[in-house]
């Protein structure tokens, strides 16, 4: 027996929410497939299958009913985000390891949907980049730069059989990688930007994918799936930090626009940092959370051991989210200002 209210808003459910978020990912994914070849479809499907499989196994082991959890769409969204965050055309077991960490370790060991402390997709990503950094830096090159563009069957071959094409033929470092290589090697930002992988603003192709993510994110904001706080604060903090660094040493630090468009900035700003389960929830908390994450992203990219810092900064802030929430509670109606 459930009390009032007796009427619920129509067309609201967890599944519907997840489907709308995935819909917002479609333009970015299409752009990705267009610029980097059809391999992404293989990793998408493979990750989704793995996700459902791991989810089902975890539910059975935990003695929970399969039904609402398996079809709420959350595991598909995780799979989708992970597939977009790691290189396509990597060996099948790499995706499997990533999805295992995402679904089993990050989600179900913490108690399933809504209970996880860390963003599952980012845990999967972090586990992979820490464990297999070599594979995680071999990104498919934009089709315009690659010697070979693997078609769907080549891609299937590469992922599941191993393939005979050497990675050098179809992969390249990302712009963040080439930037880091250049600046660490004593060269300047301009040297790095002279590389063919660099497009107008950031990575060739990748910058357009980032713009598509931005459109998807705006769709989510207009649909009230997310509020503006996290994306704006995240991107603003990236821009600000990058701007300050560039101002201090223009030769060795890329500018705000580059950092906003490169790597996982856009995906992180709209789709990953905004994961409501693991992010802050109060308006002020969201600003602090995303602001610190954006700041850390640029710091890790510039001074850290890995090329991109989006995943690590968001994971770090995930641990701080409950704490930030606790002291950024909004003023409750009828309570004087400044009184907690």
């Amino acid at each position: 027996m459930i009390g009032s209210p007796f009427i619920l808003k129509e067309h609201t459910s967890v599944r519907f929410t997840m489907i709308k978020v995935m819909a917002a990912l479609v333009p970015g994914t299409l752009a990705y497939a267009w610029y980097f070849g059809p391999g992404i479809w293989i990793s998408l499907v493979w990750c989704s299958l793995l996700g459902i499989g791991f989810e089902a196994v975890a539910l059975v082991i935990r003695g929970r009913p399969l039904q609402p959890a398996l079809t709420d769409g959350s595991v598909l969204l995780t799979a989708w985000l992970l597939a977009l965050s790691i290189p396509t055309l990597a060996p099948w077991w790499l995706y499997m390891t990533g999805m295992f960490f995402a679904v089993v370790v990050a989600k179900h060991l913490y108690g399933g949907l809504g209970q996880n402390l860390f963003n599952p997709a980012m845990v999967g990503y972090a586990a992979l980049i820490i464990s297999f950094p070599v594979f995680m830096t071999q990104w498919a090159a934009p089709t315009t730069l690659a010697n070979i563009v693997p078609n769907l069957s080549d891609a299937f071959d590469l992922v599941f059989v191993g393939g005979s094409i050497t990675p050098d033929a179809y992969t390249s470092a990302t712009v963040l990688d080439s930037l880091k290589t250049a600046t660490r090697g004593g060269h300047t930002v301009l040297d790095a930007f002279a590389q063919p992988i660099h497009g107008l603003i950031a990575g060739k192709g990748m910058e357009l994918v980032a713009i598509m993510y931005l459109f998807g994110g705006l769709f989510m904001i207009s649909n009230r799936l997310i509020t503006w706080h996290i994306p704006v604060a995240f991107l603003a903090a990236i821009a600000l930090t990058a701007g300050v660094l560039q101002g201090l040493d223009p030769a060795h630090h890329a500018g705000p626009l580059f950092h906003m468009m490169a790597g996982g900035s856009m995906l992180g700003a709209f789709f990953i940092a905004t994961d409501p389960v693991t992010a802050c929830t109060t308006p002020r908390g969201k600003l602090i959370f995303a602001g610190l994450a954006g700041f850390l992203t640029v710091i890790i990219r510039t001074f850290g051991g890995y090329p991109d810092g989006v995943a690590f900064s968001i994971l770090i802030l995930n641990t701080a989210a409950p704490f930030i929430d606790a002291f950024s509670q909004p003023r409750v109606f009828g309570h004087a200002k400044g009184v907690k």
Partner: peptide, 22 residues
């Protein structure tokens, strides 16, 4: 075996201990 480097690095210690406690 490829080696899951994560396990040797600090996060692996936390995950491993958590699993042992569990």
């Amino acid at each position: 075996y490829q080696g899951l480097l994560l396990s040797i690095l600090p996060p692996g210690a936390f995950i491993g201990l958590g699993l042992l406690i569990a």
